[in-house]
Amino acid sequence: MSTALAERHTGREQALSRVQINRALIALAALIVLLMPFLVNSGLLYLVGVTLVLAVYSVGWNVLFSWAGLASFGSGGLFCIGAYVAALAIRAGWGEHFLPVIALATLAGALVALLVGLVALRRMSGIFLAILTLSLAELLRHVLMRVRWLGSEDGIPNITRPVLSFGFFDIDLSSGSAYYWFLCVASAILLGICWWLAHGPFGRRLLAVRHDIERASFIGIDVHRSRLVAFVVSGAIAGCAGALYAPWAQIVTPDLAGMVKSTQPILFTLLGGLHSFWGPVVGAFAFMAIDYFTRTLIGIQEVITGGILLVVILVFRSGIAGGWNALLDGALARRGLDRALARQEAR
């Protein structure tokens, strides 16, 4: 074997192994998440469940942001709509048809996103879109706070976890950790859909639009339609995540439409890694960990959260996922170099 060939060979080995290591890590993480009910107490389990929902919601947001290049600051509004639809449906006794209820909430999120997108997307982008969506969500929050039928500012409490009915057999989600595993399965399916959308032809079209609008339209991509579809998909995922969230928290409040919920996906994505599919997931869990481990430091939590964010942004410019990949590449390259050197010496 010639040296050149050997080097090329190790090169391919490296490229493969980074992907392999990350795949193994994702599988391990998924396994840990699945086994959580046996590992941690119910407080942490609750947080992990919430984080899972928020991670899916943020991945949906990131498809819009990193692929279509559109930043929505009002996704909390769509999340809130999904959550309220599910809460109302369960309150009305439709809990045993929870899967259609989720579909309904997803549809509601998609429909509202479609309406907003139809009016806004043709005319504006960038910061203007951000502010428009932010104030629409804020408007929704104000409206929800005034509707007594929807519980005003205290929202809808006492949401029961549903029993899924499939005619000849039932799945009881109300007992023990059943709903948690239901969340895991639902999140996996939604992440799968997002992955397929982002890495399939649709995702490539969006990337083309983001990189160069003119060229994209020149080769026959309907720019407006692609963006609108991305906006609707992201809204559907937000609505669906909201519907999954409602029975987990067992309470929904108008604050779900507030700025905190809307900025969460942005924070998660940037902390986890921009332009990376798994970035928002990493960011969401990193944020949860920060929150959890600083929970007893009362009064200085804001300063700590802010400080950690600053350090991450200044030190790992491409977020945790990007930093990790760079670290891994560096380590692998060094190992590959060591091996090549060792081989040369041996010869």
């Binding site: 902390l271 921009l274 804001e302 959260t305 802010g306 400080g307």
Partner: peptide
């Protein structure tokens, strides 16, 4: 957007 988040962090601190 990094600067945006940085200002958010500065706000918290």
């Amino acid at each position: 957007h990094f600067s945006l988040i940085a200002t958010y962090a500065v706000m918290l601190v």
